[in-house]
Design a protein around this nucleic acid. Structure first.
Lengths: 168, 168
DNA sequence: GAAATATGGTATGTGTGCAAAATATTTACT
DNA sequence: AGTAAATATTTTGCACACATACCATATTTC
């Protein structure tokens, strides 16, 4: 039994959660700002950039590259297609796939579009001292590692259906 | 003009964004796990806890306490009410308000419910060295400060409505 | 070659989050 | 009092993000 100040520990973790939510919120707010002024959201912009980098990609490829689920990408792609920034075509080799590529409008758009958060937060982040940037990134990645350390040991409580979801 | 490695800077910020999304994702996944096994999500659980701490609260109070928008709380409250964990009643002094309080079921539920992330990530976070916890928290709050350094300088493009939102 | 299985993608439904508009109530001002 | 302004909530509409169920095409197996 460690002799710790449990109260203080709880406060610390609460603060972490609050900080995380505030960060998420800030990104979300920026996304809405983008949507209002540039007609695309942050996720949409990142999808466009990702496809641009690869020239042409399948839906699953984008999902893997962004570590998002396929169904999420489907929705985003549908909205981008409706805006005419992106086109889908059946892959000839494997007709299960759709190949995604930018339209001329899409290319043109990216040339004038702002990078995801550059105008705001990332711009300021960029101006931090190098050691501080690395410290922040290190902390974030520490959290990611902690969170991704599979919950498997704690999970099997209500065993309805396939308990051990293979991955993700 | 500083003499920096722009490429490396870009990578750093990209990594920050990726880490942030992964953290958000991990929380979301945990929330679904909770929903499946305990019938409430993380936000729902936090709303319950918040109300419990205050005995009874109005919707706006919860929103302020959690720094979420009122409309978001409305939806969460509706779901909790449907589950019978929480009840609403008109406030007598100010009939615009609804007072929220836990039902007997709600109280009982909280006694058996797990703290938001304790079973998983926070538990592990708790076991970090103290200096590391503080470093992580410090980094997160650094990000929050950067992000909240109001976008006012960049924002006023579409000035519809009260631009300078007082707080939040 | 036909049946079983695997894989890529879409459609649907739920939960979160916001903004904007609609309602109702209280407070302030004239 | 009587309207105007502020306040408290709800409703609606949109964008994510996921899981689940389902359709179409590929691959494997018999």
């Amino acid at each position: 039994m460690k002799d710790r100040d449990v109260q203080a520990d709880q406060m610390l973790t609460d603060q972490v959660l609050t900080a995380l939510r505030q960060i998420t919120q800030a990104i979300d707010i920026h996304s809405r700002f983008l949507e209002k002024n540039y007609a695309v959201t942050v996720p949409q912009l990142i999808v466009l950039r990702t496809i641009q980098r690869h020239q042409s990609m399948a839906v699953g490829g984008v999902a893997a590259a962004m570590s998002l689920s396929i169904s999420t990408i489907t929705g985003i792609v549908a909205r981008l297609e409706k805006k005419g920034l992106l086109a889908r075509s059946r892959c000839e080799e494997d007709k299960r796939r759709f190949l995604l590529r930018l339209t001329a409008d899409g290319e043109r758009f990216l040339l004038s579009a702002p990078p995801p958060l550059q105008e705001t937060f990332l711009n300021r982040f960029d101006h931090l001292e190098n050691w501080e940037k690395h410290m922040v990134l290190g902390s974030l990645q520490r959290l990611v590692a902690l969170m991704q350390a599979r919950d498997i040991d704690a999970a099997p409580i209500l065993t309805s259906g396939p308990v051990a979801a293979p991955e993700r």
